[in-house]
């Protein structure tokens, strides 16, 4: 797991004077599931296309297995791609679509048959070989696109928002299935999405991007619990972000109160941003809370209620399974590990 299979060094990309990627440094380990996550226009798809060879970086080097592959065209890279709208070939049936890459490589037909059938089984569509592409549903097209890419035994599979066109239920199903496929075939996946939940459930490593820059790289748990800046905190789940002052290690004050926390390494009395996840609050009677406020609104979300609690300095978003009515006075309680400190951005 430690080897850097793909390594992007100081990548810049400009389109007609507009910077799309700004000094991007990123590596992907062998057999890792890496997700590039960010809002549209953040450069995640461009990064993927640079790895695939469909774009050349304006500056910087792409290494594959230690070799510079800047000038290697896409058809010579041991990388395959699942495109956003699948890009299946309508003039060929399912079997011939999957066999396409192998036929270009002039693999023997008997071996092609073996490998295509194995792929059809892998994506759970064993009897679909003779079907025509326009008879497939969105989810089936998705699976065929994955099979068509994987049948070539690539070292890396690139996936460009492959689940974006599917409905919610199918998307969840495919998320689980994709992860299972990745573990089964044991190759590197680089996955692009703007859906933070998708990123959290599937990835070994998440790369959060915004405006052509990497904001944070880490495991899903790290990214969720220890967001590095306000952008990450807001993009990955919901967050309350308030200004505060870090008096010394493990002691922070915000909203006129001092709290114990677990963070350290800041300058004495450094101004910081404090992040509290909505689900980390405990709603208690007003006299037991560290913060007290009035309930301003209440939304039923299924598992929990989303409650807006207005205190003197800030209106907090609170997720609680307990109900509170609009106008109620409530107390909010935080333990030290509910409080995350970020450098002011």
């Amino acid at each position: 797991m430690s080897e850097k299979l793909i390594n992007l060094e100081n990548i810049h990309k400009d389109y007609g004077g507009k910077t799309v990627l700004d000094n991007l440094n990123l590596y992907v380990r062998d057999k890792e599931f890496v997700t590039l996550l960010g809002p549209s226009g953040c450069g995640k798809t461009t990064t993927l296309r640079i790895i695939g060879g469909f774009e050349t970086p304006s500056a910087g080097v792409v290494y594959f297995d230690g070799k510079n592959i800047n000038d290697v065209p896409p058809n010579k890279r041991p990388i395959n791609t699942v495109f956003q709208n699948y890009a299946l070939f309508n003039h060929l049936n399912v079997y011939d679509n999957i066999a396409f890459g192998l036929r270009i490589q002039k693999v023997r037909e008997s071996e092609i048959k073996d490998r295509v059938n194995r792929m059809l089984k892998l994506v759970s569509l064993p009897d679909y070989g003779q079907r025509s592409i326009d008879r497939l549903s969105g989810g089936e097209k998705q699976r065929i696109a994955i099979a068509r890419a994987l049948v070539n035994h690539p070292r890396v599979l690139l996936l460009d928002e492959p689940l974006a066109a599917l409905d919610l239920k199918l998307r969840k199903e495919m998320q689980r299935e994709l992860k299972a496929i990745q573990q089964q075939v044991g190759i590197t996946f680089v996955f692009v999405t703007h859906d933070q939940e998708e990123a959290l459930t599937m990835s070994d490593t998440i790369v959060v991007m915004n405006k052509g820059r990497i904001q944070q790289i880490g495991t899903p748990v790290d990214i969720y619990n220890e967001p590095k800046n306000a952008f990450v905190a807001n993009f990955i789940g919901e967050s309350n972000i308030v200004p505060g002052v870090m008096h010394r290690d493990k002691l922070v004050s915000f909203c006129g109160r001092t709290f114990d926390c677990l963070d350290g390494g800041f300058a004495p009395d450094e101004p910081v941003d404090v992040v509290v996840r909505p689900e980390d609050f405990e709603m208690v009677p007003p006299e037991e809370g560290q913060l007290t406020g009035t309930v301003r609104s209440l939304l039923f979300m299924g598992v929990h209620y989303e409650i807006m609690v207005e205190t003197e300095q800030f209106t907090w978003t609170v997720h609680s399974i307990n109900r509170a009515d609009v106008g109620d006075r409530v107390g909010l309680y935080l333990t030290p590990d509910d409080i995350h400190i970020m450098h002011r951005s």
């Binding site: 065209p73 990388i79 495109f83 270009i104």
Partner: peptide, 15 residues
């Protein structure tokens, strides 16, 4: 045509 069709062919090894 799908925008990525040409790239998909290249991706699968076509010149």
């Amino acid at each position: 045509l799908d925008n990525n069709l040409f790239e998909a062919a290249q991706d699968l090894g076509c010149s």
